[in-house]
Simulated scan of single mutants.
Amino acid sequence: MTPVASGTTVSPSAPAGQGIGPLLRAWRVRRRISQLELALRADSSARHISFVETGRSKPSEEMVLRLAEHLEVPVRERNALLLAAGYAPRYPETALDDPALDALWDGMERLIRGYEPYPALVLDGLYRVRAANRGVAMFLEGVPEWLLQPPLNAMRLTLHPEGMAPRIRNLREWRGHLLEQMQRQIALQRSEELRALYEEVAAYPVPREAPDSEPEEPYPYFALPLRFEHEGRVLSFISSISTFNTPMDVTVAELAIETFLPADPATVKYLHSLGT
């Protein structure tokens, strides 16, 4: 996924009613793949890919799915491609509270509980917190009740000036990282809700005095850390996001488990001392 310039979004969707050709071409251009390269990957021909993109040939359902796979099209957008080609959607969108997902939720909750005392949470495609372990509690201390009303939104909680933002010691860096992450996601999804959330949190003011200093004792971080102040101590975390491999459901495809790994020995020691 390629970052999009600040303040702009790029959607690989085509105007409604133009069929699958413009949609496929937009995804291919987005992935920076030539017609020949895509044809070789999908066991087709550049001529056939060209005909599909220009509307001179209608791809089979199997070909649509094959091209979508090689273009790494998100599951939700694969349904859009199928509809544009005149086929029924292949991937269901199961409600989060559907009993069919009970075993999945049980597994995820066991996973994030087992990660304690380190923070971990489950997010949906709009950054709403769907589950969290006790390690997340330190991030919520001092946050006003109105920001904690369900559905709790991780982006809003992190970047709002009454949320975590005042205690993030490298706020400008971390804010830039989160906004870029949202831009990449917007580039892959036709979601007005996600776009509205981005515009909201990007507009939050950043205090002029927002700290952005180096730790007192520099540590060799291997990824951008979240440096968060808790009870007078500065804790350092490396964020990791996990998604499901080969999902066959839109809802499951958009779930993510975010874990915060301590980035230095002092943070490890402090978290264990809390007895979370």
Rank of each mutant, 00 (worst) to 15 (best):
E145N: 05
G163E: 03
E77T: 05
V122T: 08
N133H: 04
L148H: 05
D98G: 10
E141M: 10
W105E: 05
G125I: 08
G86F: 11
E162T: 01
L157K: 00
Y127L: 11
A100K: 13
T158F: 07
L148W: 02
G135D: 01
L157R: 01
P117T: 12
R167P: 03
L82G: 06
R172V: 15
R130P: 07
V122C: 06
R172F: 11
A132E: 12
E141V: 14
T94F: 02
L157Q: 00
M138T: 12
P166N: 08
L152Q: 12
G125F: 11
A120F: 03
F139V: 02
E162W: 05
P166W: 03
Q149R: 15
Y87D: 02
N79G: 07
P117A: 12
R156G: 03
P92G: 04
E77N: 06
V143R: 00
G107T: 15
P92F: 04
G142M: 00
P151R: 01
A80T: 15
P144S: 00
Y115V: 09
P144R: 00
A154V: 13
L157T: 01
A84M: 02
E162F: 08
P166I: 08
R128I: 04
Y118T: 13
L123C: 00
D106N: 14
P74A: 11
E93K: 14
E72Q: 15
A131L: 03
A80M: 04
H160Y: 04
P144I: 02
A85K: 05
D102Y: 08
V122Q: 06
M108C: 12
V129Q: 06
P92T: 03
A120W: 02
D102M: 11
M155E: 07
L171T: 10
N133S: 06
R76F: 11
A100C: 09
L140E: 09
R172A: 14
R110Y: 11
E116Q: 11
T94M: 05
R172G: 07
R113G: 13
L140I: 01
D106Q: 15
I112C: 06
E93T: 13
A131Q: 07
P89R: 08
L96V: 14
R130T: 12
A80E: 13
A154M: 15
A165F: 10
V73L: 02
V136D: 00
Y115E: 09
L140D: 04
L126V: 12
D102C: 12
E145A: 15
A103D: 14
L101E: 07
L121V: 08
N153C: 04
A103S: 15
A120T: 10
V73A: 03
L159S: 00
M155D: 02
T94P: 10
R76V: 14
H160I: 04
L101R: 08
L123P: 03
L82K: 01
D97V: 06
R172N: 08
P74R: 08
L147H: 10
P161N: 03
A137T: 12
P92I: 04
P117R: 10
